[in-house]
Design a protein around this nucleic acid. Structure first.
Lengths: 333, 333
DNA sequence: CCTCGGCGCTAGAACGTTCTAGGTCCGTAT
DNA sequence: ATACGGACCTAGAACGTTCTAGCGCCGAGG
């Protein structure tokens, strides 16, 4: 039943013969371009449907100078990248662009991923949380517009769209202070990208409330969070904790609960990322959410601005996050 | 710093002029095809590097009859699909094929995803857990080889590569019986794809051990698992539970622990999927893992067999899963 | 000396589109 | 009548590759 080998696909010429017109006219009809009568349009479309014609985007893009193609590099294991890709599809479609996806996997590094996109004639590149060194990104940017999402890059060559991480933590702290907490600790992300800014946001927010900041070392993973929580347990426990990210927060949560310290009864916990983990009903973690909609819309917008040579303002676009309150935070006892 | 607009990319002709040879020769060198002397090869390559030439895959594919392109449709929110994509990249590369990714997102359905791949001239399609009706898949398969992964399809037209779900549950049950459990309950997945087979595997395994199966209704999500666990708590608790999937198992776990029933001290729990959730150290759930490596290798293999017109055996390839033992299972007290 | 075969290379035609520059026809204004 | 403009359509040249022929050259075999 399945075709034996690669079948020759029908082309414009096949449709043209069948409809008794020229290929150029078929092309016009297929593109919904002006220059054909309604009657012929119907006839051509019917012919195309009958033989199952589909335009060949390769040939199409080859001919037209602009490819209207946006390359996207994403990490296949980051669930957050999945959300971003969804948003990018929507934003690109609104602008009449297609997306070419290229994944970074354990066996396929960023160089490879970018390389295939370049061959695909993308007009611009959107890189989600890239790990390439700044120099490599800058070099890439000499060839085509490059927009980096969710990471900050110290280079004048590439555009950046990211979340205001300091403000995110500030939201978390303000939420806790608003609930009446006065003893709020921050579990740190160490060297991780974004950690410094979140730490700073925490310090500023606490000082603004007239309180003394207290930062304990943490990390990216659950184990880091668990260690941080154990460290907190040996001293006097704070009434609330802001954590670098959700995974780390999960470790904190787990250790506290196992130690019989109720969350949120004894300690309130706030994570960061609003990841799928945070949304699990058994976790139900209050968390800082990035505005995917806006991040992706701006990324596409910026890419197009560069392509069309429009003047752009700040090279770095910073999007405010918002807080998603769940059941891991409550007023102190 | 970033280029103002779409810059004209260097072409074969540019390289040819610079190296003082014909475009055909440059093409030969770029493809590592025989027919050029070592000296010229070096010269051409140097010229290409200097002007930053990259072959245009559109034009390349347009010209050569075979595109050596495999289309992959995946769901952007399924983390498991991410793992599969990684495997597919590796398998495709070994076979000298490229992958064209097309994502299904909340705002972009499967039809769309498949449509763009068809336009991209893919030779065959690999669909990860597609939700399209069988008829649509069969229709698609009349146009090009279609391999469905991780879902079973009742159609002679499409190939299927999937995990032996019944055997997976059997592994889980045997593990529990081996630990000494005699009272093992299965929390069901209802109508979900794969649920029937897992249920059957459970029943068979229990009967093979001379025990009486007991199935309670569950579902795909945590809440379903939570409800099932609560139902179990009102009767006599079994000593072990196999659950339809990890998310559902998480709900079971949560309710049991909150009710003060230790896992694995009082009840052992086994999930299914070996998802990221199961691997979280705070969850650490024993789970049935699908063999991603083999699933993807077979999927690519089968697609190529169809393309090359090689005779294939069974239309459906079933891969055995394996059990990943973690700390949610232990001998009964 | 001529032929032959292989190596290194090139000219020119594909591939399936889009685009430019017309070409017909018809109705209307001159 | 002739010219003109517009609506509809077509021929043929791109686009950047790969592929098929075939060219010139050199050394070996007749």
């Amino acid at each position: 039943m399945a075709p034996a080998g690669p079948v020759r696909r029908p082309t414009l010429a096949d449709v043209a013969v069948r409809a008794g017109v020229s290929t150029a006219l078929v092309s016009i009809v297929m593109r919904d371009a002006p220059g054909a009568s309604a009657a012929t349009r119907d006839r051509v479309r019917a012919a195309a449907d009958e033989i199952g014609y589909r335009p060949d985007s390769r040939a199409r893009l080859l001919r037209s100078s602009r490819s209207r193609l946006l390359g996207v590099v994403f990490g296949v294991q980051h669930t957050f990248h999945g959300d971003l890709v969804s948003g990018l599809y929507a934003a690109a479609e609104r602008a009449g662009y297609e997306l070419a996806l290229s994944a970074v996997t354990p066996g396929r590094d960023e160089r490879r991923a970018v390389g295939t996109l370049l061959q695909d004639r993308c007009e611009a590149l959107v890189l989600l949380g890239p790990s390439s060194p700044t120099a490599a990104l800058a070099d890439l940017a000499t060839r085509l517009p490059v927009v980096v999402v969710a990471r900050s890059v110290r280079s004048a060559a590439v555009d950046v769209v990211r979340t205001a991480d300091d403000e995110g933590i500030r939201l978390a702290v303000d939420h806790l202070l608003g609930l009446g907490h006065r003893d709020v600790v921050h579990v740190d992300g160490g060297q991780a990208p974004g950690a410094a800014e979140r730490r700073r946001g925490y310090r500023e927010a606490l000082r603004a409330g007239g309180l003394t900041p207290r930062v304990v070392p943490g990390g990216l993973g659950e184990d880091d969070g668990a260690a941080a929580a154990r460290a907190l347990l040996v001293r006097t426990l704070p009434t609330a904790v802001t954590v670098f990210n959700d995974r780390c927060a999960l470790g904190v949560l787990d250790v506290l609960r196992r130690a019989g310290r109720g969350v949120p009864e004894e300690v309130s916990v706030v994570g960061y990322d609003d990841s799928r983990i945070a949304r699990l009903s058994s976790v139900d973690l209050t968390s800082v959410a990035q505005d995917v909609e806006q991040l992706t819309a701006l990324a596409v917008q910026r890419a197009l601005d560069r392509l069309d040579g429009r003047p752009v303002g700040r090279r770095e676009l910073v999007v405010p996050p918002h807080l998603v309150v769940r059941s891991s935070t409550a007023p102190p006892r």
